[in-house]
Design a protein around this nucleic acid. Sequence first.
DNA 1: ACCGGATTTTTTGTCGACAATTAATGGTTT
DNA 2: AAACCATTAATTGTCGACAAAAAATCCGGT
Lengths: 256, 256
Amino acid sequence: MSQSTPGTKNRGRPKVRPQALAGQAPAAREKPAEKENRIHRAIVDGVMEQRLKPGTKLPEAALCELFGVGRSLVQKVLQRLAHDHIVELRPNRSAIVAMPSREEVGKLFEARRALEAAVLPLVAEHATRADYASLRRQLRKEHAAMHRYAQTEWAGLASAFHIRLGELSRNPMLRRYLSELISRCSLVVALFQPPGNATCEHDEHERVVDCLEKGDVRGARREMDRHLRDLEAHIQLVEEDTDLSLADMLGLAADP
Amino acid sequence: MSQSTPGTKNRGRPKVRPQALAGQAPAAREKPAEKENRIHRAIVDGVMEQRLKPGTKLPEAALCELFGVGRSLVQKVLQRLAHDHIVELRPNRSAIVAMPSREEVGKLFEARRALEAAVLPLVAEHATRADYASLRRQLRKEHAAMHRYAQTEWAGLASAFHIRLGELSRNPMLRRYLSELISRCSLVVALFQPPGNATCEHDEHERVVDCLEKGDVRGARREMDRHLRDLEAHIQLVEEDTDLSLADMLGLAADP
DNA sequence: ACCGGATTTTTTGTCGACAATTAATGGTTT
DNA sequence: AAACCATTAATTGTCGACAAAAAATCCGGT
């Protein structure tokens, strides 16, 4: 199969465009650490909202200009993003937005199922009445957003539920690992979920809390496992075999 | 060239001493990435073998001189170490070797129990005959080292068993998380285990493999949980309440 | 016209310099 | 003598500069 397209000089992956990154104006004076977080958040948001598509190049120089900082900061941020698997970092090459393969996505959800299951007994062990109450409050907000068709807000709240469970395990390491997996999953969901295709998820979250509050850990695990498999089943990977530069270019051409 | 100025007053936390870091001579030409790994490994080894005690300051300038690199590299390495919780990184202050509190250690082992339990079913699902055979081979080496009283080697092999289980889960994320927790645990064990107090661990590892090979996941989980609780029970934390600078000074005073 | 090698361009890797921040020191007052 | 404040020293935070690697481009041979 021939992949060489004669005459196409500007072939390759798209570079970052200014509009793709919400240009947060640097406040008059900000604490040093905040600068780093600002850049980090801007890129994460860009990826989550699909302004930055997988494979997009993120050259350090461009980011420096866009955010008005030196390369040291940009490098530190890219390092962090690479560790969270949001960008891919190759030696002597531009960092690119991570493009998980079909298999990686499978393993990712597998890991998440395992970790959520591992967390539930600890939640049941440590959670108090007040904790369950706050969970219920969160679920109400979630429902409200869903019925309002506030897509992105709802996605955030749905993740927040799982993250809250991680917190309720009262274990910082498990919480951190779970948060990491949840972020990556919602990234994948955002990537492969064409806008509008909202997976209405009934009240699977509620059922998990019901079981937990009854002390039925095994039931909670079962419900959670089913919920996560549902979530995974709802995403369809549309993947190109070896080279998606053409698709990228088309995507880039369709400029808002 | 005078090496270290003997007139410095060493009050407060101990600083890094040249002997405490195995001075790997930089090979004639090494790949860029290897430099970073060399420094990383040197510090990790130093901590594991207790040449670098918790609370030891690691100023960037000193590390630069010791390894003959610039501050960028040192910073990158410290960043990585901080992420692995081997050093603690405070803003505008020297990085110090991490000193886990009693509670952190408890949570650490809790997380590890949860994760090892979560990994076992996947191992049982994916492992082949050959995998079990290689596990058994590894166990034989472990036994040999134990009977030879090769303390440090045996510790490494014992960790290797658990790490191998992580690999056999065939899940990169779970493998990485588990490896991280195992490293931190063996770090803690090394810290609080006075040399000579070898916890002979019978053949708890064998029992886990036995259950796995029989397809008895639940049994394997039970054995593993017991094994890890045993391990935790064998470490005694000798901790100071709020401030251990005095103890540090004493530790430093007892200088070879 | 096409392929392969030399050249230019882009981009990262690494370093030392300067500014900012914190800890340590010393001097003054009560 | 103890506490407080000003000054000094040590250490990190951030930046641009230069070198090295890879990619993109150009060019001559078949």
